[in-house]
């Protein structure tokens, strides 16, 4: 502490302390500030595409090129003699909701079939996905097994690149937002949504939707970037280690309450201060309490008790 002692009486000492304190706050903020533009549902909702708009032949090309190496040309998956999945599982009975979820969240085509896939940007265009799904429904899916895509739930927001001119794009965005708000505000029983979420989902995805660790190197991802439709599809398809919540278990109306609860909570401003610690909670609070709170106070104690000592 000698260096403090020696310089404590310097006229600039007070400023240095204040700047250090501010720097600490700053570093703390940089470490904890929300990382990205927690982009609110950038998603497009639409009716089920009409048959004229989709091209199942293109869908077949895509499937054969990007999916068949793992899921086989007929979607029956690849298995070894003991019946264990080698590259990818049978997807003939998972339903189009599952395909839409897996591809629109960028999980499929998988990069690493051994491990859980993180969420990524979708690798194909919306049109290609629509074509792929048309092909899946027509030629791969058995007897319409599995859940259908919930087209009445808002999906991905319109992308500027899909529109010829600005006005059409703006109009689409407005329409999308109206639909989005109608869906979220159409739910009016917060209590039901909260209880459904906290009973069924929070032990994996955490109370805030921030995600959490699971066993065996798996994790429940954060669900803030998911569109309402993806949340719905995750429930009805049960991807990876997640259980399935079919419409029989949680009805479509209940799902709307649940999704509305998740999205409203996410959009809720942090009333307690500009540093919300990413809603990590007590671990982060304890960390800040020690590293900023107590440390600053102790630094002050050192400062005010320091005295000029004979150099030795």
């Amino acid at each position: 502490m000698k260096w403090i002692t020696a310089r404590r009486r310097h006229p600039l000492a007070g400023y240095v302390v204040v700047i250090l304190a501010l720097a600490l706050f700053g570093v703390g903020f940089a470490a904890l500030a929300p990382t990205s533009d927690e982009a609110r549902a950038q998603t497009l909702s639409a009716e089920a595409p009409s048959p004229e708009d989709v091209d199942a032949a293109n869908g077949k090309t895509i499937f054969d090129q990007t999916c068949a190496s793992c899921h086989n040309y007929d979607g029956s998956g690849t298995y070894d003699e003991d019946g264990n999945v080698t590259n990818g599982p049978d997807i003939r009975e998972v339903g189009s909701a599952s395909v839409n979820f897996q591809v629109s969240t960028g999980r499929m085509p998988s990069m690493d079939p051994e491990n859980q896939m993180p969420r990524r940007d979708m690798v194909m265009s919306e049109q290609d996905l629509a074509d792929l799904i048309a092909y899946y429904d027509e030629s791969i899916r058995i007897d319409g097994a599995g859940a259908d895509i919930p087209y009445d739930v808002p999906g991905t927001a319109p992308q500027a690149s899909d529109f010829e001119d600005e006005d059409a794009y703006q109009a689409a965005v407005e329409e999308y937002e109206a639909e989005y708000d109608a869906y979220i505000e159409g739910a009016d029983d917060v209590d039901m949504g909260m209880k459904l979420y906290l009973t069924n989902c929070a032990h994996c995805h955490s109370w805030s939707g921030g995600g959490g660790a699971l066993t065996d190197g798996r994790w429940a991802p954060q669900i803030h970037e998911s569109t309402p439709r993806e949340i719905y599809e995750a429930m009805v398809s049960g991807p990876g280690a997640m259980p399935m919540f079919s419409d029989g278990v949680i009805s479509p109306e209940e799902k709307q309450e649940l999704i509305s609860y998740v999205k409203t909570l996410q959009a809720e401003p942090d009333a307690g201060g500009i540093f919300a610690l990413e809603r990590v909670g007590q671990v982060a609070e304890g960390f800040i309490g020690w590293t900023i709170g107590l440390s600053l106070i102790i630094a002050c104690a050192i400062w005010i008790t320091a005295k000029q000592r004979a150099h030795d």
């Binding site: 706050f25 909260m194 209880k195 906290l198 009973t199 929070a202 032990h203 994996c204 995805h205 955490s206 109370w207 805030s208 921030g210 959490g212 660790a213 429940a220 909570l265 809720e268 942090d270 009333a271 307690g272 201060g273 500009i274 540093f275 919300a276 610690l277 809603r279 990590v280 909670g281 007590q282 671990v283 609070e285 304890g286 960390f287 800040i288 309490g289 020690w290």
Partner: peptide, 26 residues
């Protein structure tokens, strides 16, 4: 400046609720 224990975000306790990501105070 730093939010602590945002009870309005947590919501009320109900006996069926279970969640990860919550700890006691340090």
């Amino acid at each position: 400046f730093v939010q602590i224990n945002p009870i309005h975000l947590f919501g009320p306790f109900t006996p069926t609720s279970i969640t990860s990501g919550l700890q006691p105070d340090w």
